[in-house]
Design a protein around this nucleic acid. Structure first.
Length: 453
DNA sequence: GTGCCCACTTCTTCTTCGGA
DNA sequence: TCCGAAGAAGAAGTGGGCAC
């Protein structure tokens, strides 16, 4: 996600003097990030090259430096998509043979949870890996990978560890500048839309965002009145309402936000409604879902967002609408809030966490350090389930150990979950959260009419 | 030669459906 | 009822063709 895994991996290469490193990833857009971090770590090692299709040297250039000097070393970046097109792994093109033939000392697989579990992905790694090649898998959300590794093969550095280090630094290193101070604290606010709109509350999937935002063939919301009402609710000027845009102070806090929407057509329709809304019309809307809005000139997602935010984020307001774009591998520093308006009770924890941590990127905006960031979720049961899963506990009744409770308690300490019911605010502690989760599971079992085993 | 557009491919997630 | 397969939708990347 953004816990410094790139910098750490590059430092490992530097300290271990690894001569030929291949970085493989399913997200080619992270090439730029790797190149920028390479420049930070290897600024004092001119004989150590970086190569890729778009940044740094060519593979031939890298190989020449390696061959001509005993200390010549390099890191080469390649995408799994490009590699799997090679005839050597069953693809249609005679390409990338040099990469497959090199005797790599180290292969780093970035975003290892993506594109590595398929036949083609496995074939690429297997073909690149030689007898003495070491392999390092990097992932911010390795939920689908944990079972493939032994305990002593896994090193974890997560949000809780980072925030704990931030909190403990001053006690241990009195007077020294705290390197973790730039890392914002995340808070999750939940609102129960299912109570406001019971007709969209579904037994299996919690709040049914897909139905709530459903559009007709012409691209208009079927339940437009409800959605307008929802937007009005978010912006209703009332010091007691506690909705995200209800006061001037809140609007200042959430100047730039990411909204997750269930579909491309739905994002387009919402973009239109937002632009007509008395409050949201003051926000620049960047619709990065699908082809975006018809009248938009800029088609590249990240540039669209940058254009909407403008050169002075402290003075502008923006909303980015996405169905999945820009939720992995990229950082938009001015984002301080994420609105989860899609997904279901069954949303994968990895996807959810990848998305919400987009807003936790450290930043200095208008000379001020970003200290806090926020997630707004409108399906509370889903939020609790995902957080429980992330804290690696089974939230079903009777399966929670004392150790699990401690882990969850620490998570809630650094990432508070605040639930709003009507105008009441409640902060979840471990017991309350497990109780609510148990209730949600039981309600599902009762509604579905079977014993949930 | 370069840049843009379009078709195609692959992967992921979610939903639906049918067989055990 | 449950579980897995299949299909749909969407995202993202690659490569080829075409215009300039």
């Amino acid at each position: 996600m953004r816990f410094g895994k790139t910098l750490t991996a590059l430092q490992v290469i530097k300290e271990c003097d690894i001569r030929r490193t291949l970085i493989l990833t399913h997200r080619p857009v992270v090439d730029k990030g790797w190149f920028e971090d390479y420049e930070k770590i290897f600024y004092d090692r001119p004989e150590f090259l970086y190569g890729s299709k778009n940044y740094g040297a060519s593979l031939n250039g890298c190989e020449q430096v390696f061959a001509n000097s005993a200390t010549g070393s390099y890191i080469y970046f390649a995408s799994i998509q490009d590699m799997r097109g090679s005839e050597l792994v069953g693809g249609k093109f005679a390409k990338n043979e040099e990469i497959f033939n090199i005797n790599w000392d180290l292969i780093i697989i970035d975003e290892a949870h993506e594109g590595t579990q398929t036949e083609l992905g496995k074939a690429v790694l297997s073909k690149c890996r030689k007898e003495n090649t070491r392999v390092l898998h990097l992932s911010g959300t390795p939920f689908n990978l944990m079972d493939d590794f032994k305990e002593d093969e896994i090193y974890t550095w997560d949000y809780v560890m980072e925030q704990r280090a931030k909190a403990e630094w001053d006690k241990i290193h009195q007077g020294d500048p705290n390197p973790y101070s730039v890392l914002p604290k995340l808070s999750i606010y939940t609102y129960n839309l299912g109570k406001l709109y019971p007709e969209y509350a579904d037994a299996d999937i919690a709040f049914n965002f897909r139905e709530f935002f459903r559009v007709d063939k012409e691209g208009y919301f079927i339940h437009e009145a409800n959605i307008k009402q929802f937007l009005d609710l978010l912006t209703k000027e009332d010091t007691d309402s506690n909705y995200p845009y209800s006061t001037e102070e809140y609007r200042q806090n959430f100047r730039h936000s990411l909204w997750m929407i269930p579909g491309v057509k739905e994002a387009k329709a919402l973009s239109k409604l937002l632009q007509e809304h008395p409050v949201f019309s003051q926000f620049a809307i960047a619709n990065v879902a699908g082809d975006g809005d018809e009248e938009e000139e800029e088609k590249e997602a990240l540039k669209k967002v940058e254009k909407a935010i403008g050169p002075n984020p402290e003075d502008s307001y923006s909303i980015t609408l996405s169905c999945g774009r820009l939720t992995t591998g990229v950082s938009v520093k001015p984002w301080t809030a994420c609105f989860m308006l899609s997904g279901s009770f069954n949303t994968a924890a990895s996807t959810y966490m990848q998305t919400i941590f987009r807003v936790q990127t450290p930043a200095v905006i208008g000379g001020k350090q970003k200290e806090e960031c926020f997630v707004f979720d409108f399906a509370p049961d889903r939020t609790l389930k995902v957080i429980a899963e992330t804290a690696k506990i089974s939230s079903k009744a009777g399966k929670t150990t004392n150790n699990d409770r401690e882990i969850l308690g620490e998570f809630l300490n650094f990432c508070p979950i605040i639930g709003f019911e009507g105008s009441q605010m409640k902060v979840y502690n471990t017991e309350k959260m497990l109780g609510q989760l148990k209730k949600a599971y039981i309600e599902r079992v009762v509604k579905n009419g079977f014993e949930d085993s």
